[in-house]
């Protein structure tokens, strides 16, 4: 028991216990079709969460990820839509749309990185401002309208579950390898532990921080592709209410809000745990108010357990 409690896979064990405990009372929870439902919900959230994990490890925060998703969604829609797209019907519509969605993420990531490193604006304020500006821009760009008529070859990316799983899997694996195996990954932890010490030790902190925000934006752009394809709509409000879910999942997965600690695998478990809780509460058919309270309570309990585990580990 002690081994499980102190294991770095605690959140995974919690997810399994939760699954096993609820399955007998939750109709359909252990079915194949429900597994697909959970996966479809989890994949885009995981991609955003992985990007955010990198930023949190350097002790930063990116509040603009959901607005990047929204802007990329409508930009992609405006390019590809057969109803109102600039390249409607063109053979290059989908590649151009995909590229533009990723570039939106990279561009806003660069703005965030520039604001944090060159202008030395605290990450919270810099990305909060970007979030407000970009959200407004997405709404202005479409005048609040949703963009339909997306090409089937694009929609397939979010609706064929195996394609979305491959995209998410590759992105997550690359982030994991970058963090665990490369010098860049070690620099991220060093900056998160102590940015000044890292600088003195020869880590190019400004460049690394800048690159981390760009990567986070890129992941948000990629997530936007999955969200937009899954809902078959370019939406200026896409993922607007997902920010707390994403931050919650990353933190539950063991990433510290103060930087220097965190793993991509932990984030995978955090997102899985949140998705399981959300899905089971839906299947139970509880009323809205109960669902909100239970969800908050379960997440709080998981976070408390993780905090206790870290305290034990720190004591050795």
């Amino acid at each position: 028991m002690r081994r499980v409690f102190l294991s770095e896979y605690l959140v995974l064990w919690l997810s399994l216990v939760y699954f096993a405990a609820l399955a007998p009372f939750t109709p359909g929870f252990a079915s194949w079709s429900n597994f697909q439902t959970i996966l479809a919900y989890l994949l885009p959230l995981l991609v955003v969460a992985v990007g955010l994990t990198l930023v949190l490890i350097i002790g930063g925060i990116d509040l603009s990820v959901t607005s990047i998703i929204a802007l990329a969604s409508v930009v992609g829609g405006k390019i590809m839509s057969s109803e109102e797209g600039w390249l409607a019907g063109h053979a290059l519509a989908v590649p151009a749309g995909l590229m533009a969605m990723l570039l939106v993420g990279v561009g806003i990531g660069m703005i965030n990185g520039f604001a944090v490193t060159t202008c030395r604006i605290p990450a919270f304020i810099a990305t909060l401002t970007t979030m407000m500006f970009v959200s407004g821009l997405a709404i202005w760009f479409t005048l609040s309208r949703k963009i339909g008529g997306l090409p089937p070859s694009f929609v397939m990316l979010g609706q064929k579950l195996w394609i979305a799983a491959v995209i998410t899997g590759v992105a997550t694996w690359l982030a994991h390898v970058t963090l665990a195996r490369t010098l860049f990954g070690r620099w991220l932890y060093a900056i998160g532990h102590n940015a000044k010490a890292a600088l003195v030790s020869g880590v190019p902190t400004a460049r690394v921080t800048f690159a981390t925000y760009v990567l986070c934006g890129l992941f948000a752009g990629l997530a936007s592709i999955l969200f937009t394809a899954g809902l078959e709509t370019g939406n200026p409000e896409m993922a607007r209410d997902n920010l707390l879910d994403v931050v919650g999942a990353v933190v539950i997965g063991g990433t510290s809000l103060y930087g220097g600690r965190g793993r991509v695998v932990g984030t995978v478990f955090g997102v899985l745990f949140l998705a399981l809780v959300d899905n089971s509460l839906n299947l139970l058919g509880l009323n809205f108010y109960t669902v909100t309270m239970v969800k908050g309570g379960v997440i709080l309990a998981a976070a408390l357990l993780d905090a206790m585990r870290n305290k034990f580990l720190a004591r050795g």
Partner: peptide, 18 residues
């Protein structure tokens, strides 16, 4: 709760529940 992605998941859970 205002989230189109969550709404899609919730409708799918209705389907799962038959």
């Amino acid at each position: 709760d205002g989230d189109a992605n969550r709404q899609l998941q919730q409708v799918r859970t209705f389907v799962t529940r038959k």
